[in-house]
Design a protein around this nucleic acid. Structure first.
Lengths: 152, 152
DNA sequence: CAGTATCCAGGCGGATACTG
DNA sequence: CAGTATCCGCCTGGATACTG
């Protein structure tokens, strides 16, 4: 059955960088616009997932690109050791941060942003900048309530 | 890029790239760097949470800022009706999208990006751009596995 | 200090059914 | 078509304890 909606389309205000009508129709119809395995989906997953952004941001903004796990945890209240490790592992897997172990008596480990990781800082900073710039507008609306609320 | 930290009080780090050593130490020590209720945390929460980015992106890129829920769902394979509604509700609450109901026989609703919502498109596009630009570098590493895997 | 392993509650989110 | 409500599996993520 043709589930295609009436699609008035009369509204479609020609935007700048959007997909041409014909093209997007094809995309939407075929459902190929944002398949599970497209780059954006995967990256947004990485991004959206957990503490990735915060960890990367803290590493760069607070410590200039290199720091020890303890420092990160102290800088990010609420981030448990478990999540910190997990996040760092993921970032390491993806080549965004590098892990350097110093075999000394009190174990010491340094994590640093890789070149690739550094490139990701820009988008992240955009988000932080946006957050700061529109904080008032968001707060004015009552702000987050139903979403990911956690007990404590 | 000024990766200055959240700036709790009125500190004015003339630093170009980062917080002065002394200051950041204080921040980290006091744990005031990224408190639960700072703007970035809240926004990243909104961002990171679910399908927000994808919905906003699809609305803008595919439909120029306005579209019907059905269209979004078709454009985003994997997005259930439940999540779609929930996401739209949140975005509406935060004033990023506007909901317009047309009381006709087959119910028709249009969602559009608000001015505020439109401003959020930029950061989102940055992410998408980054994703595309570094897709190869990420894939080369084996890419996501342990994270949010889902059965199907 | 850095990291792992285990236990376990809570929520996230899918499937389904139903209303307007 | 748009939206809500319910049921429920599963994964996320905190707490705790233990190793090096």
């Amino acid at each position: 059955m043709d589930t295609r909606v009436t699609d008035p389309d009369g509204d479609a205000p020609a935007a700048k960088g959007r997909v041409p009508a014909a093209k997007r129709e094809a995309l939407a119809a075929k459902g190929e616009a944002f398949t599970e395995d497209c780059a954006p989906r995967r990256v947004l997953e990485l991004f959206s997932a957990k503490w990735t952004s915060h960890v990367l941001h803290a590493m760069q903004a607070l410590y200039g690109g290199t720091c020890r796990p303890g420092a990160l945890q102290r800088a990010l209240p609420g981030l448990s050791k478990k999540m910190l490790t997990q996040t760092l592992r993921e970032l390491e897997r993806d080549g965004l941060v590098a892990r350097e172990v110093h075999h000394v008596v009190p174990p010491r480990v340094d994590y640093s942003l890789t070149p690739l990781g550094r490139t990701m800082i820009e988008p992240i900073e955009m988000l932080y900048a946006w957050a700061r710039d529109h904080e008032a507008e968001l707060s004015a609306l009552g702000l987050r309530a139903p979403s990911r609320r956690r007990k404590a």
